[in-house]
Simulated scan of single mutants.
Amino acid sequence: MRNLDVTTLRSFVAVADAGGVTRAAGFLHLTQSAVSMQLKRLEELLDVELLDRSGRTIALTASGEQLLIYARRIVALNDEVVERLTDQAYEGEIVLGVPHDIVYPVIPQVLKQFHVAFPRVRVRLISSYTRALKEMHEKGDCDLILTTERALDPKGEILGDKPLRWIGAPGGTAWRQTPLRLAFGRQCTFRPHVVEALDLAGIPWEIMVETESDRTIEATVSADLAIHTMIEGTEPPHLERVDHGGALPELPNQLINLYGAHSVKNVMHSTLADFLRRAFAKPEAARLKIV
């Protein structure tokens, strides 16, 4: 395997741009002999002539013209990587707020992707309820937030529109019990809509667990003591969608909204917003709805 050296390619590009070794050497702050030696090594590595030295001025051969295209791209990419990893402009912190129920499975993938793009930027993830996140965003405590809600406020952006699903223990029977036992968070925005759907269907219900802890809810549901509701596709692997065959009412869709993207501060914020859009976008969505 033969490897090209970026320093040598930079010298080659400089010679091509300057029209000669002497001027290129001055631009690179190297001696003329050092630049000539680098070009010679490059020709030996590729086993081709890159420069036509038959005339009074140096010209590129056909191989040299071809290499120049790649050399410019390699040098530019090298400089971009170095700048991205070392420039203080790509340092700092972004505060991202996400509701508990949609952290998995998407957000870890987004954070990993963003870290690759901006390794020197810290993303501080805050997980809370939609109502609390919107209050934090209004106060300026979060740069970007996601929400799960039925409507969209001004300056927000819809990333997804997904149905709520009944969730229970694998093979569980809690959904067959009367009254239907439910497990919910105290500030869960789904709860009023779920209760309304059950009342309209004439299904008696009771709250088995009311807590601030998602872990407590998952433990109760996993033990088949109650059922829960989650946005489609966000249920953890140890729970499953209840196959009730129509015995339970259909639940309304929930919007996954993004706030803060309209006032992005820099390229890091806009990139994180783009990663979130792509992660939550439906494949069939032609474009995002922006208000």
Results as ranks from 00 to 15, higher is better:
L4G: 06
T8I: 10
F12I: 15
V13C: 15
A14W: 08
A14H: 07
G20K: 11
T22R: 14
A24G: 10
A25W: 04
A25F: 02
A25T: 13
G26F: 08
L28C: 09
M37V: 04
M37D: 04
K40A: 14
L45W: 01
L45S: 14
L46I: 02
V48T: 05
L50E: 05
L50D: 10
L50G: 13
R53S: 13
G55I: 01
T57F: 14
A59I: 08
L68C: 15
I69A: 14
Y70S: 15
A71E: 09
I74C: 05
V75C: 13
V75T: 12
A76F: 03
A76V: 12
E80G: 04
R84V: 01
A89F: 01
V98M: 06
V98I: 11
D101L: 06
D101C: 14
V106L: 02
L111G: 00
L111A: 03
F118W: 01
V123N: 05
L125G: 03
I126F: 02
S128R: 08
E138K: 06
D141H: 10
T148K: 10
L152C: 12
E157F: 06
K162D: 13
K162Y: 09
G168D: 09
G168F: 06
G171D: 12
T173I: 15
Q177Y: 04
F184H: 08
F184Y: 12
F190V: 06
F190N: 15
R191A: 12
V195W: 05
E206K: 14
V209D: 00
I217K: 04
D224G: 12
H228C: 15
G233Y: 07
E235F: 14
R241C: 14
V242L: 10
L251M: 13
Q254C: 14
Y259I: 01
S263H: 10
V264W: 03
V264A: 11
R277G: 05
A281S: 14
K282C: 05
P283K: 12
E284K: 01
